[in-house]
Amino acid sequence: MTEIVCRCEDITEEDILDAIDQGYTTLEEIKRVLRCGMGPCQGRTCIPLITRIVARKTGKSLAEVSRPTTRPPLQPLPLSVFAGEEE
């Protein structure tokens, strides 16, 4: 059975487990290798799911799996919104 965990980049649970087997044991590395968390959802959908997979596979608690930095903007916004404002 194939379970998609990252809908922006079409990444399955199997892809995550493979990455961990290759030594990419942190969310920071998985993000860089598979682009999870870098698509339009910015990790809202996928990061909690992947955190669980990493915790289960590496035997850590959820709290021990550090999460990538949340970046602004909080929601996608058009460039024209920022271009239009005065200093």
């Binding site: 870098m38 970046r71 602004p72 903007p73 996608p76 058009p78 024209s80 919104v81 920022f82 271009a83």
Partner: peptide, 19 residues
């Protein structure tokens, strides 16, 4: 945003995901 939109006005429509 100001500099890019001046050079490529159409990019004003693009959504910024992350900085």
């Amino acid at each position: 945003a100001r500099t890019v939109v001046e050079l490529v006005p159409a990019f004003g429509h693009l959504n910024v995901l992350r900085q």
